[in-house]
């Protein structure tokens, strides 16, 4: 026998799950939405996505190496790549490159690495980047190109998104629900096709990368709350289906809110988190100054996650419910 015997505590076997597997699972799940956006926005979508991913990876590597001076890099675990893709999915496809790079720096630098890197960030890094861009560069961030101009980048014709139409009260100008569902409308790069995002979500659920609790509770809350408002005043408010299929709701519910690091740990907590996000989203959409509330809702609830974690404990085995 050549080896020295290893001693360690049990368990001596591992299920084989890894960070990489989960992160690449998310990336694969994002592929359908990427394909749709390539089909709809063409060259712009490609440039924005590639720039964003490359910039995020670069900043992750550079900060780990030169500022944190850590030996092992988290570059290959896929988390920075996800931040890049999600950031790209959250911006219009005609965003100039320099803005994307600033967004990536804020997302990785401020949103993630200042807190200690993977696993320590209180807010979803991609959201930090997006919200920073949205508040700092509102004009560029709210001019959405019209779908179908495959070879144009920053010089495209722009149009209002369905949510902006709703905000301004032009309910009759909304595209029909089917084209909203398929993605044939103006909007941020990755959020337009609810169908593609749902496909990705189904893949994540199948691979057990995420559980159903957060997406379902968000979508259900939005549906119910928007439905109540619609029933009260069908002329003033859009139908709940329109709410479900427009804006960043699907993208947020399936990919952003379910971010491991920033969402609660217990199923009970996840449902509370999801319901609050759904409620806040509709609240901002219907009564707030911004047409879209998804990113702010997730951002606010990210801040509440530690609190939810403290007060939502899983049911202990054999626990007798106090009467």
């Amino acid at each position: 026998m050549a080896n020295k015997l290893t001693v360690s505590l049990s368990p001596h076997v591992h299920g084989g799950d890894s960070i990489q597997r989960n992160m690449y699972g998310v990336l694969i799940a994002l592929v359908p939405a990427l394909l749709v956006s390539l089909y709809m926005f063409g060259l712009g979508a490609l440039i924005v996505t590639l720039t964003s991913v490359a910039a995020c990876l670069f900043f992750e590597w550079a900060i780990t190496k030169f500022i944190l001076k850590r030996g092992c890099s988290t570059l290959c675990d896929g988390s920075a790549a996800i931040t890049g893709v999600l950031l790209a999915f959250n911006v219009p496809s005609n965003l100039p490159i320099w803005l994307i790079i600033i967004g990536a720096l804020v997302a990785i630098g401020i949103g993630k690495m200042t807190f200690g890197g993977l696993g320590c960030n209180p807010f979803n890094p991609a959201l930090v980047g997006r919200i920073f861009l949205l508040i700092s560069f509102p004009v560029q961030m709210t001019t959405w190109p019209v779908a179908g101009q495959l070879l144009a980048y920053t010089d495209v014709n722009t149009a209002a998104t369905p949510l902006a139409l709703m905000q301004q009260g032009h309910l009759s100008d909304l595209p029909d629900t089917l084209s909203l569902f398929l993605g044939n409308n103006a909007g941020s790069l990755g959020e337009i096709s609810a169908l593609a995002l749902l496909l990705g979500g189904a893949y994540l659920l199948w691979k057990k990368v995420i559980t159903w609790h957060i997406p379902v509770s968000i979508l259900a809350t939005v549906f119910v709350f928007a439905g109540i408002m619609w029933m009260v005043d069908p002329a003033g408010y859009a139908s709940p289906l329109v709410h479900l299929f427009t804006g960043g709701l699907m993208l947020g519910a399936i990919f952003m809110a379910t971010d491991y690091v920033t969402s609660p740990m217990t199923h009970k907590g996840q449902i509370i988190y999801g319901v609050c996000i759904g409620f806040l989203t509709v609240l901002i959409r219907l009564f707030g100054a911004y047409p879209e509330g998804m990113s702010f809702a997730i951002f606010i609830m990210n801040a509440f996650t530690p609190l939810i974690n403290t007060y939502c404990k899983p049911k202990r085995f054999g626990e007798v419910v106090k009467k």
């Binding site: 080896n3 020295k4 015997l5 290893t6 001693v7 360690s8 505590l9």
Partner: peptide, 19 residues
């Protein structure tokens, strides 16, 4: 001389309890 390899949490209290 080292006779074995310890492969666990890098903490004396845990290593002491392990072996």
């Amino acid at each position: 001389p080292r006779t074995n390899v310890y492969d666990g949490a890098w903490n004396c209290a845990i290593a002491n309890a392990t072996a």
